[in-house]
Simulated scan of single mutants.
Amino acid sequence: MRSTPDGRYIIVRGRLWRCADPSLPEERRQALVADLMNARRAVGQAKRSGDADAMKAARAGVDAAKTALGERGPVWWTDGAPDLNRHMAHTTPYAAWFAAVSDGER
């Protein structure tokens, strides 16, 4: 896993995924990550049980934690740069950097 030079995204299989807001206090970030992991476990349990209501609640928990972390929702940076979350790195302004560091990873 590699981070973009500006720290806004990680790259997974050539795709940009928004990072958590680095201005979050560490204690708050850890609590939100714990919430996220609990919600992801709940998604798995709901899948195994086939409980549609539990699945809906678990997915809402994942979304709430990711939004609070800054990985979804409004961007946490203030320079007006667009959100490129989920874009392929080679189709973004990071393309030249990605080509130089990726060794053909796509």
Rank of each mutant, 00 (worst) to 15 (best):
G50E: 01
D6Q: 06
R15E: 04
A54N: 01
D21F: 01
A20D: 07
K56R: 13
L24Y: 00
Y9G: 01
M55T: 00
R2K: 09
T91M: 11
R13I: 06
M37R: 11
G104H: 07
M1R: 05
L16C: 09
K66I: 07
R29W: 05
G73S: 11
E26R: 11
W77N: 03
A95G: 05
G7H: 08
V43P: 10
R18C: 08
R13P: 04
H87V: 07
K47R: 15
L36A: 03
G61A: 03
A42C: 08
V101S: 01
P82V: 05
A96M: 04
E26M: 07
W97R: 08
Y94F: 15
Q45C: 01
V75S: 09
S3R: 13
V75P: 10
A57T: 12
L69M: 06
W77L: 06
G14H: 03
G104A: 09
A42M: 11
V12R: 11
R13S: 15
A68T: 00
A100K: 10
G70C: 11
E71S: 14
G70Y: 05
M88F: 12
W17R: 14
K47C: 09
R8K: 12
G44E: 10
R86P: 01
L16R: 05
I10S: 12
L36P: 04
L84P: 03
V101F: 00
T91S: 13
G104Y: 02
P82C: 02
G44S: 12
V62W: 07
T67A: 13
E105M: 01
Y9T: 01
M37E: 09
V33T: 04
